[in-house]
Design a protein around this nucleic acid. Structure first.
Lengths: 343, 343
DNA sequence: GCCCAGACAGCAAACGTTTACTATCGAGTC
DNA sequence: GACTCGATAGTAAACGTTTGCTGTCTGGGC
């Protein structure tokens, strides 16, 4: 591959001048010289070496997004949002999927540090591993000290996200919607208690019930994994527990999808007997039968704002934490209380 | 951030020696010296600069995956497969989403070239843009000449994929399954004719019918976009066309999901009146009601093998093109012919 | 007692840029 | 006519590694 030196030689100028032309530096170069350099660059199919450039500037125009699971629609939507912003600003986006393994997350962060990535955006909440988290914090500290930006989009061990979503308010709004429809016995599929987001959403459920003057029946709160098998399992636990309820509120859509499926398998009509609602509004939520009522999160915008926050920090700015609003979306899976299940 | 020079100074050795220790070079270093260097590195929280290293080796341990749309489960599953392989071999995976825009794809490839990525894996098939494709080819040529690996997982303008899936055989098998169930009037939602994959799948449909001694009714073949709105639109076109059929075979699951939804909206029973099948077996295919019969593609394995092929090429090896087998998965959306629709 | 090999360590060049500093030149200023 | 200044161009250092080459030292073989 041609280097700037060769371009300079072909154009009959010094590497410095060639560099000033191709990197569009703010430095005067005569029109004639400029043209000759450009022509030489074109002829040699010159593409600047980002490594050499990055080595000098100790930063490479890359923003990394760390997600729990790239196949989870929640995350891919956020990633797309980050890309929207980043690409418009000339950054490349690296997506790193930790598979919910803190050690893996740590090694990604280490690699990003070693590559001098300009920014790291954490899309998911923190994981549960003291040692790995300590390593991550060390790397992050070094990176920020070096001028890189770090942004969280979910609550994490270090505290509040710089840009986030009001999880608790969202769930509370869904609960209020159920109550308005006439439901009083509302179950909650909570996801794993170790996840910060799950904790916030559970808190929203409690708050929603409290706001409506209803008390929480702990037997109706079940914690499983954060995916559709977890939803199916949750329904089994609920049903086999025998406690009565007319609605199931889920901490995310994947749980709700699994719940819908298992309810169908166990011949329980939705929303005839039981209403179901999810959270996130992933694209498949509209495709199920019945279609899923849920709480829409502006995921793509969350990602975009996450990038913008990073960009602002990169430029030396700063700002207040920000919480994006959510919106209840009613579809086919919710209705006034039906016959319910349990005694 | 500490450099190897500082580590060397703290350990009281030369940078060369320090480098040989931390990079685990095949060069003798006395145990005592080694220990001192390691200790110094630990103390300074030293992390090697991947840019400097890459500049010297003119390669950075990164493999890039180029996808059409990161939110499409097909692609995220493939990406995960690539990650499986790459992470195990010490590579970082960069995911680049072209949004089906060849210009954007070209600028990604250019950036990857400038960053000296070790390998580029194209997950989706080529796009339709002569000029952008020419630029991409130029970059790719330079990269391969420089020792990088390029792997395609789908048919593209340059020819057959190095590792791929037997699309035509998969669709043909699905058609054969329909025929075995007793269907003779099988519609096909084809996706955009400009996509190579879509072309292969359409060919599979034709072959499947031919194998069964059935002729193709062109009025039952409808080309739309490759997503769920496309599926809904396709159903509308078929239904409004008034031509009779008892089954719909779709070129991918997203199409089938959209079709299922629209059929439900138009009160057509699945599989009571019409059977539906998809292609890909994305995870939501099992979550719909009725659950979707489809053809399972080993997407994750496709990604993993794609990485392995790249790895092999990086090591100077080469190999024959390879086609992965598919498998028909029967779920709730297919049955023996029902009353059908149309006259 | 001399020579040689092998183990170990350091020097310095090289990778491809960018940029602070210096040099040249012509034009305007007094 | 000497001086200053702005516009251009070039020189060389620096970013952080790796590695070929050149030593130095120790021990063993003769």
């Amino acid at each position: 591959m041609a280097s700037i030196t060769e371009v300079a030689r072909l154009a009959g100028v010094s590497p410095a001048t060639a560099s000033r032309v191709v990197s569009e530096a703010d430095y005067p170069v005569s029109a004639a010289t400029r043209a000759r350099v450009l022509e030489a660059a074109r002829e040699l199919d010159y593409v600047p070496n980002a490594l050499a450039r990055g080595l000098l500037k100790s930063r490479v125009p890359v923003v990394a997004v760390i997600v729990h699971d790239i196949t989870d629609p929640y995350f891919s939507e956020v990633v797309r949002g980050v890309e929207d912003g980043a690409n418009a600003s000339g950054y490349l986006v690296i997506t790193c999927s930790s598979e919910r393994d803190a050690v893996r997350e740590a090694s990604y962060v280490r690699l990003l540090r070693s590559m001098r990535a300009a920014a790291v955006v954490f899309a998911g909440s923190g994981l549960d591993d003291r040692e790995a988290n300590a390593e991550i914090e060390r790397h992050l500290a070094a990176m920020t000290a070096d001028g890189a930006a770090v942004v969280h989009l979910s609550p994490h061990a270090g505290g509040e996200p710089e840009v986030g979503v009001d999880n608790a308010a969202g769930i509370a709004a869904m609960v209020a919607t159920f109550v308005a429809l006439g439901h009083e016995r509302i179950a909650f599929l909570a996801g794993p208690g170790s996840l910060f987001v799950a904790q916030e959403r559970l808190a929203g459920y409690r708050r929603g019930l409290a706001d409506a003057g209803l008390s929480v029946d702990e037997r109706l709160v079940v914690a499983t994994s954060f995916d559709s098998p977890g939803g199916a399992l949750g329904v089994d636990i609920l049903l086999d527990g025998g406690v009565s309820f007319t609605a199931i509120c889920c901490a995310n859509d994947l749980l709700a999808l699994g719940a819908l499926r298992r309810l169908a398998e166990r011949a329980i009509a939705v929303p005839g007997q039981v209403s179901v609602a999810g959270f996130d509004d992933i694209s498949t939520a509209a495709l199920t039968a019945p279609s899923l009522s849920t709480v829409r999160l502006p995921l793509r915008e969350l990602g975009r704002l996450g990038f913008e926050e990073a960009d602002r920090r990169l430029a030396g700015g700063t700002s207040e934490p920000r919480r994006l609003p959510t919106e209840v979306v009613l579809r086919g899976s919710t209705a006034a209380p039906g016959s319910g299940v349990g005694r």
